[in-house]
Computed example of a mutant assay.
Amino acid sequence: MDTFEYISASHRVVFGTGTLQQLPSMLKTINATSVLILCTPQQIATAQQVQSIIGHDVGVAIFSDATMHTPTHITDAAVLVAQEKGVDGIVSVGGGSTVGLGKAISIRTGLKHLCIPTTYAGSEMTPILGETENGRKTTRRDIRIIPTSVLYDTDLFKTLPVNLTVYSGINAIAHAVEALYATNRNPIIELLALEGTRSLVEALPVLQTDDQNTEARYKALYGAWLCGMCLGSVDMALHHKLCHTLGGTFNLPHAETHVVLLPHALAYNASTPATAGAMAKLAGVLPGSEGDAVKGMNALYKRLGIDLNLKGLGMAEEGVDEAVDIALANPYKNPRGLEREGIRELIRRAWTGEEAGRDTKRLL
Rank of each mutant, 00 (worst) to 15 (best):
Pro253Ser: 12
Ala270Tyr: 01
Leu310Pro: 07
Asn298Met: 12
His240Trp: 01
Thr272His: 02
Leu313Ala: 09
Asp325Ala: 15
Leu282Ala: 10
Pro335Ala: 14
Ala280Tyr: 04
Leu261Pro: 09
Asp307Asn: 14
Pro263Ala: 12
Gly277Phe: 02
Leu300Gly: 08
Arg336Ser: 05
Leu207Asn: 08
Tyr218Pro: 00
Tyr218Ile: 02
Glu322Pro: 01
Asp292Pro: 11
Ser271Trp: 03
Asn269Asp: 11
Val324His: 12
Leu226His: 08
Leu246Cys: 07
Asn298His: 04
Lys295His: 11
Cys230Tyr: 00
Lys311Pro: 00
Gly232Arg: 09
Asn330Gly: 00
Leu266Trp: 03
Pro287Ala: 05
Tyr301Phe: 14
Arg217Ser: 05
Met279Lys: 10
Met279Glu: 04
Glu322Gln: 13
Leu286Cys: 06
Glu256Lys: 12
Asn309Thr: 06
Ala224Phe: 08
Leu246Asn: 03
Ala316Asp: 12
Gly312Val: 03
Gly247Cys: 12
Ser289Glu: 04
Cys243Trp: 03
Leu328Asn: 04
Lys333Ala: 14
Glu290Asn: 15
Tyr268Asp: 09
Glu317Tyr: 01
Glu318Tyr: 05
Leu207Glu: 00
Leu308Trp: 03
Gly314Ala: 07
Ala267Val: 04
Leu231Val: 06
Ala316Phe: 00
Ala316Thr: 11
Gly305Arg: 11
Leu310Tyr: 02
Phe250Ala: 12
Ala293Arg: 11
Gly248Phe: 06
Leu300Ser: 00
Ala224Asn: 12
Met315Glu: 05
Asn309Cys: 15
Ile306Cys: 13
His254Tyr: 05
His244Trp: 04
Ile326Met: 14
Leu300Val: 08
Leu226Ser: 05
Gly247Val: 09
Tyr268Glu: 07
Val259Met: 12
Ala299Ile: 06
Cys227Ser: 15
Trp225Ala: 14
His239Asp: 12
Val259Asp: 02
Thr257Met: 13
Ala327Phe: 00
Gly296Arg: 06
Tyr332Lys: 13
Ser289Asn: 09
Leu266Gly: 02
Ala327Trp: 02
Glu290Val: 06
Lys219Ala: 02
Ala276Gln: 14
Leu266Lys: 04
His264Glu: 03
Trp225Phe: 15
